[in-house]
């Protein structure tokens, strides 16, 4: 048995979700009575070792990879490593690049692939996994018929504790080919701004905010909490906020520790994007709003009066 987890670093470091994935992969490996190899890309060796300390037995620090847009050659370069280190399970987080590699390696190795994994398997032999389907309306139990499987973890899994393992570190320089049919015209990096999908706290506004001119208190609450800003679909459709902030079924799916929904009624499409949050706080003037069915804490009231006093109370 061998289990490999792949992580691509972010700005030469790692995010809380990524350390959670290492911790979760480690409990996965322990339950399967196996060793965990962490394969990292885009991380300096010291950071990779730190990340591995969340529960890996071994870290392979990879560099010299083809550009991230060249997915087929990336898989060609990583293939021997996955084949050797992930004979039973190859694990990924659910960021865009990892999902792409997960699919391509599964296609290449003819492994089964299960995404949306947020819990340890019901059983390892035979392998049965439970995951949400229909945007969380039902749970399905999936039987993986033959050994060799690729799994993609949800964000927000794992209890990350630094330094609980002292992995063996190996550096590996891979020489990938590159595809001249894919040219990078330009690239914007996120100038260090907190990403909605990484954020552990999110403050979100809906149609109940009445207009883009009323976003000041949301921005202020986000800044006091160190939270990222989000919105519901009507808000982005109306152009009040950029569609990059849209969370919900067709927008971004997020799993922060704290989600504060302000003036959001909680349509099922919206809930599909936030029901992985640990704690949901809802502020809405309609006590019948469906958001209160999924919220942990609620205030029935006008956002225009509740938000300023919430901000004031937080500052005290």
């Amino acid at each position: 048995m061998s289990i490999a987890l792949y992580i691509q670093g972010r700005n030469r470091s790692y995010t809380p979700h990524q350390s959670g994935w290492v911790a979760f992969a480690s409990s996965f490996a322990k339950s399967a009575d196996s060793r965990l190899t962490l394969i990292t890309q885009g991380l300096p060796p010291d950071k990779a070792a730190q990340l591995g300390g969340f529960g890996a037995d071994e870290v392979m620090v990879v560099d010299g990879m083809p550009p991230v847009s060249d997915l087929h050659n990336s898989i060609e370069a990583l293939f021997p490593l996955f084949k050797e280190k992930g004979k039973t399970f190859i694990l990924f987080g659910n960021d865009t690049h990892s999902k792409a590699l997960a699919a391509l390696i599964a296609a290449r190795l003819e492994f089964g692939i299960v995404t949306g994994v947020g819990a340890l398997p019901e059983s390892f032999s035979p392998l049965v996994l439970t995951r949400k389907a229909f945007s969380g309306k039902v749970l399905t139990s999936t039987l993986v018929g033959k050994p060799g499987v690729v799994l993609v973890f949800n964000a927000g899994v794992g209890e990350a504790v630094a330094g609980i393992s002292s992995p063996v570190i190996a550096e590996l320089h891979l020489n990938g080919n590159s595809d001249e049919g894919i040219v990078v015209d330009s690239e914007e990096t996120g100038d260090g701004k907190q990403l909605l999908t990484d954020a552990l706290r999110v403050v979100s506004g809906g149609r109940g905010m009445k207009g883009p001119e009323n976003w000041k208190p949301l921005e202020e609450l986000a800044s006091v909490l160190g939270a990222a800003l989000a919105c519901s679909r009507p808000v982005s459709d109306e152009g009040w906020r950029s569609h990059h902030e849209h969370v919900g079924q067709t927008g971004k799916v997020i799993a922060p520790e704290l989600y504060v929904a302000c003036g959001i009624s909680g349509a099922i499409q919206h809930v599909a994007g936030i029901n992985g949050s640990k704690v949901i706080v809802a502020i809405n003037k309609d006590k019948e709003a469906p958001i209160f069915e999924v919220a942990d804490y609620g205030i029935v009231g006008d956002v225009n009066t509740v938000l300023p006093s919430l901000i004031k109370a937080l500052k005290e």
């Binding site: 003819e110 492994f111 089964g112 299960v114 049965v128 949400k132 969380g136 309306k137 039902v138 749970l139 399905t140 139990s141 999936t142 039987l143 993986v144 018929g145 033959k146 809802a282 209160f292 069915e293 999924v294 919220a295 942990d296 804490y297 609620g298 205030i299 029935v300 009231g301 006008d302 009066t305 509740v306």
Partner: peptide, 21 residues
């Protein structure tokens, strides 16, 4: 390679704790 062998409904979430404005 994969078979769905069973479906179930998720556990209902506990009641929302209300705080007065």
């Amino acid at each position: 390679g994969l078979t769905t062998i069973g479906y179930s409904y998720p556990k209902p979430k506990g009641a929302c704790r209300m705080v007065a404005p």
